[in-house]
C-alpha cells in the first residue's frame, strides 16, 4: 500500500445523488450524500428497506442501471470515479473497491463453477495464472472457515448452503486484495449462528489485512459488533453520522433514537410489546421540501417544513458527528420522545 497523508480520506463522497426517471419527471433515490472513509476504517450505514443503501453502494462502483443519472462526486484516493471511462472503472472495480452483494444465491451465476467465478476477476485484473488464482481462491475460502475448499471450488452455487454462498461472495470480493470492501447486507439472509460466524470472519479480516469497509445493513445490532462509525440513512439522505459508540450512547436524531429504542434488549421484561416507529417511510418519488421524517417525528414543529442541513451535532466537539435535524435541545431529551 502506498503511504498516505492521514488526513486524506481513502474514499470521499460529496453531494452524491441518484436520480431515476419516473412518470412525473426525475425521482431522487439518493440525495446530497457526503461520506468519508478513512483507511482501515469500518463505516456502517443503517436504514430501513428502500432508503437507498444499496443504491449508494452501486453508485460508488458505477454499477447503477442504464437509465439512472448520477450527480456529485465520488473520489477514490483523489481520483474521480463518477463519469470515469469504462476502462478506468474496470481497473477500480474488484481491485480497489470490491462489493459483496446482498442475496448470495442470485448474485452468483448458477451456470458456472465457484472456481470460475472466484478466479475470473483476479485473472483479468492481476493477470494471475489459472493455477495461482485457484490457489488463492482455495486459501481465501479456507481462511473464511469453509471446509474442503478444493471440493467447494469444483461445485456450483446451488450445491452450497446459504452461509457458504455468502462467504464465497466475501472471498470472491477479496480475491484482488481490494482497498475498500463494500458489504451489502452480508449477514441479513443468514441465520444467527452463521451471522455471528461471518461477523467474526470479517472482524478477523480487518485485524489481519486492515481493509477499509462500508458495511450496509438495517440491523444496528450487527453494526455495533463491527463498525467504527455509523451513518443513519432515511429516505435517500444521511440524517445522522457519528462514531459508533457515540451514536449508540447519545443519538442526536429522533429517527436514530427511535431505531435504538425499537431494538429488543435482553433485560426488557418478556411481556413488553416491541416498540416501533409509527407510520411508513415516504414512498420513493414522494417530493417533500421539508424534513422527510417530520410526518413520523414526535418532535415535528413548524420549522420542520424547512429541509434541515447536516450540521455538527455538538458545536463544542465537532468530531462527535453530524446530524440533520432542527432540534437543538439536550441530547438526553431524545431518549424520552418514544413511548
Amino acid at each position: 500500500m502506498s503511504p498516505e497523508p492521514r488526513h486524506q480520506a481513502l474514499l470521499s463522497v460529496r453531494g452524491l445523488g441518484v436520480f431515476r426517471p419516473g412518470p412525473g419527471g426525475e425521482v431522487a433515490a439518493l440525495r446530497d450524500i457526503d461520506l468519508d472513509l478513512q483507511p482501515q476504517e469500518c463505516l456502517g450505514i443503517v436504514g430501513e428497506s428502500g432508503c437507498g443503501k444499496t443504491q449508494l453502494l452501486h453508485a460508488l462502483m458505477g454499477l447503477q442501471s442504464g437509465n439512472v443519472r448520477l450527480a456529485g462526486s465520488v473520489r477514490f484516493r483523489g481520483e474521480e470515479l463518477l463519469g470515469a471511462s469504462a476502462q478506468r472503472l474496470a481497473l477500480v472495480r474488484g481491485r480497489r473497491l470490491a462489493l459483496v452483494f446482498q442475496d448470495a444465491l442470485s448474485a452468483l451465476n448458477p451456470y458456472l463453477r465457484i472456481a470460475t467465478q472466484m478466479t475470473e476477476g483476479a485473472r483479468a485484473q492481476l493477470g494471475l495464472s489459472r493455477r495461482a488464482a485457484w490457489q488463492r481462491a482455495a486459501t481465501l475460502l479456507e481462511s473464511l472457515q469453509i471446509d474442503a475448499p478444493a471440493r467447494r471450488l469444483r461445485q456450483y452455487p446451488h450445491e452450497l448452503s446459504g452461509g457458504m454462498r455468502q462467504r464465497v461472495l466475501i472471498a470472491m470480493a477479496l480475491m484482488c486484495e481490494p482497498d475498500v470492501l463494500l458489504l451489502d447486507e452480508p449477514t441479513t439472509a443468514l441465520d444467527v449462528t452463521v451471522q455471528a460466524q461471518v461477523l467474526a470472519v470479517l472482524r478477523e479480516l480487518r485485524a489481519r489485512s486492515g481493509v477499509a469497509m462500508i458495511f450496509v445493513t438495517h440491523d444496528l445490532g450487527v453494526l455495533a459488533a463491527i463498525a467504527d462509525r455509523v451513518a443513519v440513512m432515511y429516505a435517500g439522505r444521511i440524517v445522522e453520522q457519528a462514531a459508533a459508540a457515540h451514536l449508540y450512547a447519545t443519538p442526536r436524531h429522533p429517527y436514530t433514537a427511535g431505531l435504538l429504542h425499537s431494538m429488543p434488549r435482553l433485560d426488557t421484561p418478556l411481556d413488553t410489546r416491541l416498540s416501533t416507529i409509527p407510520g411508513q417511510p415516504p414512498r420513493s418519488g414522494a417530493t417533500s421540501t421539508g424534513c422527510a421524517f417530520a410526518p413520523r417525528c414526535p418532535l415535528a414543529h413548524e420549522r420542520c417544513t424547512q429541509l434541515p442541513v447536516l450540521r455538527c451535532a455538538d458545536n463544542q466537539f465537532p468530531a462527535n458527528g453530524t446530524v440533520a435535524c432542527h432540534y437543538d435541545g439536550p441530547a438526553q431529551g431524545l431518549r424520552e420522545i418514544w413511548p
Partner: peptide, 26 residues
Amino acid sequence: GNAHIRTARAKGLGDTAVLLRHALRP
C-alpha cells in the same frame, strides 16, 4: 437485469467477458 450480471461487472470484467461468459448461456 439479473443480479449475477451485476456481480460480473463488479469484478471489473469487460463487456465481452460479461456477455459471453455470464449472459449467453442463460
